[in-house]
Amino acid sequence: MRVAVIDGQGGGIGKHIVEQLRKRMPELEILALGTNALATGAMLRAGATEGASGESAICFNADRVDLIIGSFAIMTVYGLLGEITPAIAAALSLSKAEKILIPIQRGNIRIIGTNRIPLPHYVESLVNEVEQRVEQKKE
């Protein structure tokens, strides 16, 4: 299974996600897609299999993965303090890949029905979901 972890800014959330995925599923193919080189580098140092940066790389790879992972902001135009371009948001939204998103609520978007819990708890839930998808795909 090929999984894309998408992040921007300093790549802190993506780094944490990649670390936890790598711990639980060492064989998983993880593609780090950063909106910038700093974010991609952080995810690569955390154990991503390969990485690429920028709008073109994210748009190109959106349909070449089985699963897209990141915060909810990667799906919103100008999310991550403006780093998510309309082209990125469209490519991710239109991708046939399943998306597993962390409901981090910043700016003027509120997601009703979610609890505000610490990021590590969201990441643990996300990794559990990915693990289930990987097991289902093996069957």
Rank of each mutant, 00 (worst) to 15 (best):
K96G: 15
V134A: 12
R106G: 15
A46C: 08
K15D: 11
G70R: 02
L81N: 10
Q20K: 15
A52K: 10
P118F: 13
I68T: 00
L92R: 01
E83A: 02
L31N: 05
G113T: 12
P120N: 15
S93E: 04
A39R: 02
L119E: 15
T114R: 12
A87V: 05
I117Q: 15
D63P: 04
A91K: 06
S95R: 10
Q136C: 06
A37F: 03
K15Y: 11
I84D: 06
F60E: 07
G34Y: 01
M75I: 11
E129H: 11
G54M: 07
T114P: 08
N108A: 12
G107Y: 14
I74E: 04
K15I: 09
M1D: 11
I13G: 06
F72L: 12
T76Q: 10
S56A: 12
M43Y: 02
S56I: 13
G79T: 02
K138V: 06
A48P: 05
P120R: 15
R133S: 06
L44Y: 04
K96F: 06
L92N: 03
Q136S: 14
A90C: 10
A62F: 02
A52M: 09
G41Q: 06
M1R: 13
L92T: 04
V18M: 09
K99S: 06
P120V: 11
V3T: 12
G34V: 00
Q105R: 14
